[in-house]
C-alpha cells in the first residue's frame, strides 16, 4: 500500500492485483464461455463476447476546472469528454461520460493501477479516483439484430439518429442497469455490475434466441 499525499487530499491507494500465477475470475467465469463458443453456432443475428478482467476506474472531478481537465488528460493521454453522453477512445484507453463530474475510464486490466497512480500524481484539489475493476464487466453485443435485442432490453432510443456511434448512456437494461456505448454501427458495449452479470447474461440469451446467438470467447 502506498499513501498519496498532495496539497488537498490524502487517500489510500493499493495495487489490488496479485501476481500472474493467480487467475482472476470474471463474473461470467463460471459460464465457461470458451466451451460455449466452441460448441455453439458460428452464425446468427447477435454475437456476444465478455470483455473480461478489464481495468475500470471511476474518476470524479470538476469539469469547469481547467487545471484538473489538463491533469486528467496528461495522466490518461486523452482529454476527458465533457459533452454529456459522449466518449473518447485513444489506443487502449476509453473514457465514458457518466455525469457532469464523473467519468468511467476503461483500460486493460493490468494497466489499471498504473493509470490510477498516474491520475493521483497529476491531479490536485478536490477529485476522486476509485478502482472499480472487480465490480463491473463489459459485454460486447454485435450483429445484424443487435438493435432488436437492445429494444427489448433498454428504454432509450437506439435509432442511429438518436444514438450515434460513440454515444454513451447510463440507463436501465432489463430489470438491471448498464452503461451502454455504441462502439460501431452494429456493435454496442455494455458495462454491467458484477452481481447482475449472470442475470443479464441469461436475459441476453433469452432475448437473442429468435435471431440466433453466437458466443465468442
Amino acid at each position: 500500500m502506498s499513501e498519496v499525499n498532495n496539497e488537498a487530499v490524502t487517500v489510500s491507494v493499493m495495487n489490488q492485483l496479485p501476481d500472474a500465477s493467480i487467475q482472476g475470475e470474471s463474473p461470467l467465469f463460471h459460464a465457461d464461455l470458451a466451451s460455449v463458443a466452441k460448441k455453439g453456432p458460428k452464425t446468427g443475428g447477435v454475437t456476444f463476447k465478455e470483455e473480461a478482467l478489464m481495468g475500470q476506474i471511476t474518476l470524479r472531478l470538476n469539469a469547469e476546472n481547467a487545471d484538473q481537465l489538463s491533469a486528467a488528460e496528461k495522466a490518461l493521454g486523452v482529454a476527458l469528454p465533457t459533452q454529456p453522453l459522449t466518449s473518447v477512445v485513444e489506443g487502449d484507453v476509453s473514457v465514458r461520460w457518466i455525469s457532469p463530474d464523473e467519468w468511467l475510464v476503461v483500460v486493460p486490466g493490468l494497466k489499471a493501477f498504473e493509470v490510477e497512480t498516474a491520475l493521483h500524481a497529476e491531479l490536485s484539489g478536490h477529485y476522486q479516483v476509485v478502482n472499480i475493476s472487480g465490480g463491473w464487466t463489459i459485454y460486447k453485443l454485435s450483429g445484424a439484430n443487435v438493435v432488436d435485442v437492445l429494444k427489448k432490453s433498454t428504454i432509450v432510443d437506439v435509432h442511429p439518429s438518436k444514438f450515434p456511434v460513440g454515444k454513451v448512456v447510463t440507463t436501465t437494461f432489463a430489470k438491471s442497469g448498464a452503461i451502454i456505448r455504441r462502439s460501431g454501427e452494429s456493435e454496442f458495449e455494455l458495462v454491467v455490475r458484477r452481481s447482475f452479470a449472470d442475470y443479464l447474461w441469461l436475459w441476453i440469451q433469452d432475448a437473442s434466441r429468435e435471431y440466433g446467438l453466437v458466443v465468442q470467447a
Partner: peptide
C-alpha cells in the same frame, strides 16, 4: 497471495477478520 484490506470487526462477538479482496480474486 492477493492484496487485501482486512478489518478486525465482529458481528458475532468472536475474534473476527473481515477480508476484502478485488472480487475477481474472491473465489481464489
Amino acid at each position: 497471495g492477493v492484496p487485501a484490506r482486512v478489518f478486525r470487526i465482529s458481528f458475532t462477538g468472536e475474534l473476527s477478520f473481515e477480508i476484502n479482496v478485488q472480487a475477481n480474486y474472491g473465489m481464489h
